[in-house]
């Protein structure tokens, strides 16, 4: 589904990604772990199409197409979803109207008719339960005045409604207490299926206790220096990032 080859990305004059390779197939959950500044969030932003990043080399294919040919909205319409590390507050834009517009834009791309208000509400009610979303948040401005946990929950709720093919969760665990983390993780777990791929970007192993990944990759200084299964994350937790970094140097 997603193939990243030798991706090199620069922000202004600073090289952040220095030749990153990754292949993600439908049905898989990949965790990308790394210390601060390793390039995790840059990877997530570049995949979603945020401005301000220069791709200096390499290629990313999504379903066989050059991802960089697509605008952020086209990526979203073709099934890519980014759950933001810092969801943006947008005063005056109604949360539920945005979600309805998003869903109908995606449906239009798929050649499906828009959902009417009643049908949409049915979808919303069903998906709200997945993340234990408070109904009062639906009619507020997008993320405005939401607590940290509510913002992250709202992201996963959006993901549940939009049913992406490729979901990228950027540090969704940061700032969550353990109960909120469990709720969010359960929501994500119910969204796992054969046709959907999920990429978890995280600093800590903690999230992976609740969302068990198929693959774990360690990102350091702009490259994936080690890949493995879930046991790699556990080992990382015990020994720290220095351990893999040294291992990589020795190799």
């Amino acid at each position: 589904m997603l193939t990243i080859k030798d991706l090199q990305v620069r922000i202004e004059n600073k090289q952040i990604l220095k030749g990153l390779d990754l292949a993600v197939n439908a049905g898989e959950v990949h965790a990308i772990m790394g210390p601060n500044g390793s390039g995790k969030s840059t990877l997530a932003s570049v995949l979603a199409g945020r401005d301000g990043y220069d791709v200096t080399a390499g290629a990313v294919e999504y379903d066989g197409r050059d991802l960089f040919e697509l605008s952020p909205e086209d990526r979203a319409r073709q099934g890519i979803f980014l759950a933001f590390q810092y969801p943006v507050e947008i005063p005056g834009v109604n949360n539920i109207y945005l979600l309805k517009a998003a869903l109908n834009a995606i449906r239009a791309h798929q050649g499906q008719p828009p959902l009417d208000a009643v049908e949409f509400l049915q979808v919303v009610r069903q998906k709200m339960q997945l993340v234990n979303m408070d109904e009062s948040l639906l009619n507020r401005s997008v993320n405005e005045g939401f607590s940290g946990g509510e913002k992250k929950r709202n992201e996963i709720f959006q993901m549940a409604v939009l049913e992406p093919r490729l979901a990228i969760l950027d540090e969704t665990d940061s700032g969550l207490d353990i109960d909120a983390l469990k709720t969010v993780a359960e929501g994500v777990n119910t969204l796992r299926n054969e046709s959907r791929a999920i990429v978890l970007v995280t600093h800590y192993q903690r999230l992976l206790n609740y969302i068990v990944p198929d693959y774990v990759h360690v990102l350091s200084d702009g490259k994936i220096i080690r890949s493995g299964d879930r046991s790699l994350a556990v080992e990382l937790e015990e020994k720290g990032y220095d351990w893999v970094r040294q291992g990589a140097k020795a190799a």
């Binding site: 979603a48 199409g49 945020r50 401005d51 605008s71 952020p72 909205e73 990526r75 979203a76 319409r77 979803f81 980014l82 933001f84 969801p87 943006v88 947008i90 005063p91 005056g92 834009v93 945005l98 979600l99 517009a101 998003a102 834009a105 995606i106 791309h109 401005s141 997008v142 959006q158 939009l162």
Partner: peptide, 28 residues
């Protein structure tokens, strides 16, 4: 720019996102 990107990442095209943010600014 962050608001624009957020809306576009939710499948809204750029013109719609701009119009929406502009209207929301006034509606306040």
């Amino acid at each position: 720019e962050n608001m624009l990107f957020y809306l576009r990442s939710r499948a809204l095209d750029e013109d719609t996102a701009r119009s929406l943010l502009t209207y929301a600014f006034a509606d306040e």
